[in-house]
Nucleic acid binder design. Sequence first.
DNA 1: TGATTAATGTACGAACTGGTTCGTTAGTCA
DNA 2: TGACTAACGAACCAGTTCGTACATTAATCA
Lengths: 221, 221
Amino acid sequence: MTSVEEPARPGGRTRDAARTKAEILDVATQEFSRAGFAGARVDEIAARTSTTKRMIYYYFGGKEQLFTAVLERAYSVIRQAEQELDVEHLDPVAAIRRLAELTFDHHEAHPDFIRLVSIENIHEAEHIAASEELGRIGSPALDVIGRILATGRKSGLFTADVDAVDLHAMISAFCFFRVSNRHTFGALFGRDLVASDQREHYRAMLGDMVIAYLTADRAAD
Amino acid sequence: MTSVEEPARPGGRTRDAARTKAEILDVATQEFSRAGFAGARVDEIAARTSTTKRMIYYYFGGKEQLFTAVLERAYSVIRQAEQELDVEHLDPVAAIRRLAELTFDHHEAHPDFIRLVSIENIHEAEHIAASEELGRIGSPALDVIGRILATGRKSGLFTADVDAVDLHAMISAFCFFRVSNRHTFGALFGRDLVASDQREHYRAMLGDMVIAYLTADRAAD
DNA sequence: TGATTAATGTACGAACTGGTTCGTTAGTCA
DNA sequence: TGACTAACGAACCAGTTCGTACATTAATCA
């Protein structure tokens, strides 16, 4: 994840603000996600960086703002993935399934992100509230979901009365829980939800669940 | 939540080990769930108790063991609720829905429990692993789910190929996420998943989702 | 090329925090 | 009723942790 190259200059590193900031963010992401906000150690972050603690305060101001910056970058990654999604040429059922799988894949590939979000929820999202950037950008996925939903409903395929936000919550819940609660669930019920040989099983389960919900015959209700 | 009465004796409280322990657990539950494990302050717990920090170490040994005791008690509450569940006289569809609603109601009513479990996952379930008690007791809900599932499948009502653990995961994911991610979800998407006027909406959505999944026509797959 | 400033490193300290030491007292039971 | 012990309280301590004051050097540009 170290996103920078060092030209190995004799007599020490060259000065590069962007590189230093990125390196601090990389290490801070690991440390915060490892130990939570209060459990994370600023000294530990500095030690695992090729720079010093002084730079953390120079660039970010403090532990709190550093955590906010870490969150901002983590969210930008998934927003990016959502933006690159191209499913609106598919039929509604395939499109929703594909979109759900994107969330599934992203959450599985980024357990650090999941942990950061869990931590942020313990702190009642106070850093998100304090972040201009995170308040501004919405979720590209929501727009996509909204359009697919409209198409599916118009054709009579989708019967469920949900909006994009609720459907996004349903998909996220499944994908998030699988990663976030992996450890307690495993310890209590003896099943590893993130075991690689079960990956396709749960990925299919998610799609089946969402599609079944959207297309269910509600005549009997 | 303070589960004890004080007889208001002149000249100070009477001695009562059970009451003191329970009071410490009550306050510790709040403090841990408020701030996480590392963020929780032993001094703060002691201060909000009618006893002293000395007693925490006297009865529990340390911060780590105190957290384990808090977790044990929190889990015992939901296990109790599951044990009292009586749904096997219902038809499979109604039984599953009722069981899902039990989880829904419990999680909503116990946000502290949700936070504790989130915290425990940050710490990779190390306290559960260290707890004899939590390892021993399974989940009464799993047995119930297993029997309902068998009945439903035999009658041809349920078509989905899931076992009790996976279905439990699906239900838990929805109920847990709604409470655990309430703050980030609200901050980012502007919707309060735990708003009281939306309660019935999400409660129905959960049941619809699970039943649709279990009874979906899979001929087209 | 000399001045200016962004970027960086070292050392330190004040406040906090988990845990302990030492001493006291209420209840109990022979 | 007197000895014994479980229950309790106050003060303290050693290690830690966030943050900063002070000093320095590499890049830039007039």
